[in-house]
Design a protein around this nucleic acid. Structure first.
Lengths: 147, 147
DNA sequence: TTTGCTGCAAATAGTTTGCAGAGAC
DNA sequence: GTCTCTGCAAACTATTTGCAGCAAA
């Protein structure tokens, strides 16, 4: 929790540094994204905040996500079915493991990825700047039949 | 080229097996997807075919792609900016290296991916069924300033 | 006080769908 | 001849934008 507050503070500081104002709505969005263990969708964020700000608009959520993305403080995960999920907790690219039944998203630790990046750069003669790695499967709870 | 015709034939056979008719429009879409070194978009496919079939509809391209996806004969690559590109040549998941300048997509050879999949399964206790791996960067031509 | 932010509603873009006629088998 | 496929246009969904008032700094 201390970590999450710290993360939210980091984002707020970065916004101030870049001349952006801190509104209550914006702060609420940041707090949710900074926690974001569950990789929430825009709709998730909107619904959560509407409890406290009944007049909150979806457009505001979208606008703030665009802003935070442009500052590199939130990671967007788009999926083939058109859904987008967000991670403001660890905005640097990292692998995800996604349960196709319950939609849970887990962050695995993968040491070999850096090496792979070098391998690809060497083979294709690209300058690699970024990556995206997702594994899709079924989590242990869903396999146990709870899904 | 022989390979590509073979690939197109495979797709046609699978369609027939599943009781689908082979129309000229459908065949044209299949041929483009079977070649698809360049990972074409729906719009690319549509434009190419319109040269031969002026009445071709975008809806037909979409419908056929949905069909081919459902048969596992085409791989859909959705990107954060909302664009979709398709690969009917190698429909099994494989890594891609994408130039963010010229949008070129290259298929690298990566031996270490299988091992990584096992590593992830072990660590997260997921049954891994599928994956998606993209590297984003700048290709050598674009780095040489041709972009 | 200044400037950026919000909420609303309308606009937009990509994709999907209903329907009637055309065409593959 | 049957039944699927196609083309058209309308529908749909997620996201973006214009504008006027509001509020952070």
């Amino acid at each position: 929790m201390a970590d999450h507050n710290q993360r939210a503070d980091t984002i707020v500081r970065k916004l101030r540094e870049n001349g952006h104002k801190i509104t209550p709505q914006r702060l609420a969005i940041i707090k949710i994204l900074a926690v974001s263990e569950g990789h929430p969708s825009v709709e998730d964020i909107y619904e959560q905040i509407r409890a406290d700000f009944p007049t909150m608009s979806l457009a505001t959520v979208y606008r703030n996500i665009v802003l935070l993305k442009s500052l590199g403080e939130v990671l967007e995960l788009g999926f083939p079915d058109g859904s987008n999920r967000y991670d403001g907790n660890k905005p640097a690219p990292h692998p995800h493991v996604i349960c196709i039944r319950c939609k849970k998203i887990v962050d695995p630790v993968l040491d070999s990825l850096d090496e792979m990046k070098k391998e690809v750069a060497l083979e294709t003669d690209f300058k690699i700047l970024n990556h995206r790695l997702d594994f899709f499967g079924i989590c242990s709870s869903c396999m146990a039949g709870k899904g």
